[in-house]
Computed example of a mutant assay.
Amino acid sequence: MVLAVDGLRMRYGSTEVLHDVSFQARHGEVVALLGPNGAGKSTTIEILEGFRLRSAGTVEVLGVDPARGDERWRARLGIVLQSWRDHGNWRVRELLHHLGTYYAPYSTSTIDRPWETGELLAAAGLTEHAEKKVKTLSGGQRRRLDVAIGIVGRPELLFLDEPTTGFDPQARHEFHDLVRRLAAEYETTILLTTHDLDEAGKLADRILILTGGRIVAAGSPAELTTLIAGEDEVRWSIDGQTYRKSTADSTEFVRGLFSQYGAAVRELEVRRASLEDTYLALVRDGLAGGREPAA
C-alpha cells in the first residue's frame, strides 16, 4: 500500500479541521481528494508530505510516518504546487537537468533516479520547447514543466494540488492526458486535490469527497454516481397545465405517464440526476453537520 491513513485528526487550538479521516491508495492508482475551499484538502496533503504535524491518527506514506521522513524518503515523492513562478531565465532542458542532479544519490536497485532529461521532456510533452526560456512558455506549457519538475526524481507518489486552476479547455485536456499517462505507463501513484468534480471524474480511479474536515463519501466515479445519485426531475404538461415530479426511476415514470395519458402529454422534459447534484448536496449536508463520516 502506497498510502495508509487511519483516524487522522488535525486541530488548531480549539478548532478541529480534520475529523477521523481514513483512506488508502494503491500502487499506480489515481485518487482525487475532492471538496470545497476550506474542506481540509490542503491540510491533509501537507500532513502526508511531512510539512505539517498531525494532532492524532496514524499515517504511512511509502511505508514511513511522514513526521519521521528523511531525505531518502522525500526523494521518493513528487509535489506539484498550484503555481510556480521561479526560474524564468532558465531554459527548460537545462533547468530539468540541473534539478535532476539532486536526485542522483538516491537511486536504488530498482529505480534509477533521476529521469534522463530527454525522456522526461518527452513524457511531459515538452520536447519541442526544450530550448525555450521558462518565462516564454504558455500557461499550459508552464504547467507541464511544473509536472516535469515534480517527477524529475521518478517519484513513486505524486501530489497534485489544484493542478488545472486557470487553465483554458485545451490546456486542461492536455494536462489530463499527461496525468493518465503517468499513471498508466509509468505506474506513478497520484493523489490529486481539486474542487472540480468533472476533473475528478475524468482522472481518478477513486474519489474521496471531503467536506467539513470529514470524508462523507468514497468510491469510483461510477460507484459514487450509483451510491449517492439523487432523483431525476420530470416535467410535462397536459391541456396547458404544467406538472413536475421527482423520481428515482424517470424511465419507468415516463413509461407509465404515456401509458395513462398517451398523446395528451406535451412538453416532456427529463432532467437526469448528476454526480454534481449529489456532490453539492453532500457538501451542504457536510457543512451543516448533517452527515457522519463515510466508512
Rank of each mutant, 00 (worst) to 15 (best):
His129Trp: 12
His129Glu: 07
Glu131Ile: 04
Lys132His: 14
Lys133Asp: 10
Lys135Ile: 12
Lys135Val: 13
Gly139Trp: 00
Gln141Lys: 00
Gln141Pro: 00
Arg142Lys: 13
Arg142Gln: 10
Arg143Val: 06
Arg144Asn: 06
Arg144Phe: 01
Leu145Trp: 03
Asp146Glu: 12
Val147Cys: 08
Val147Leu: 12
Ala148Thr: 06
Gly150Pro: 08
Ile151Gln: 04
Gly153Ala: 12
Gly153Pro: 09
Arg154Met: 14
Arg154Ala: 13
Pro155Val: 13
Glu156Phe: 06
Leu157Lys: 09
Leu158Ala: 10
Leu158Met: 06
Phe159His: 09
Phe159Pro: 11
Asp161Cys: 04
Glu162Trp: 03
Pro163Gly: 10
Thr164Cys: 09
Thr165Gln: 04
Gly166Asp: 07
Gly166Leu: 05
Gly166Lys: 05
Asp168His: 02
Asp168Cys: 01
Arg172Gly: 07
Glu174Cys: 02
Glu174Met: 11
Phe175Met: 14
Phe175Gly: 05
His176Ser: 15
His176Met: 15
Asp177Thr: 14
Leu178Cys: 11
Arg180Ile: 07
Arg181Val: 06
Arg181Phe: 00
Arg181Ser: 15
Ala183Cys: 01
Ala183Ile: 01
Tyr186Asn: 11
Glu187Pro: 04
Thr188Met: 15
Ile190Asp: 02
Ile190Leu: 02
Ile190Phe: 01
Leu191Ile: 14
Leu191Cys: 10
Leu192Pro: 05
Thr193Cys: 11
Thr194Asn: 03
His195Cys: 06
His195Thr: 02
His195Phe: 07
Leu197Phe: 08
Asp198Pro: 03
Glu199Lys: 11
Glu199Ile: 10
Ala200Asn: 05
Ala200Tyr: 07
Gly201Val: 14
Gly201Tyr: 11
Lys202Leu: 15
Leu203Val: 06
Leu203Cys: 10
Asp205His: 10
Asp205Asn: 08
Arg206Cys: 09
Arg206Leu: 10
Ile207Pro: 07
Leu208Pro: 10
Ile209Lys: 08
Ile209Gly: 09
Leu210Arg: 01
Leu210Pro: 00
Leu210Met: 02
Thr211Glu: 09
Gly212Pro: 05
Gly212Ser: 08
Gly212Asp: 06
Arg214Ser: 14
Ile215Trp: 08
Ile215Glu: 12
Val216Phe: 06
Ala218Ile: 12
Gly219Met: 10
Ser220Thr: 15
Ser220Ala: 13
Ser220Gln: 08
Pro221Cys: 14
Ala222Pro: 03
Ala222Leu: 14
Glu223Gly: 11
Glu223Phe: 12
Leu224Asn: 08
Leu224His: 06
Thr225Ile: 11
Leu227Cys: 12
Ile228Asp: 04
Ile228Gly: 04
Ile228Leu: 10
Gly230Arg: 05
Glu231Trp: 06
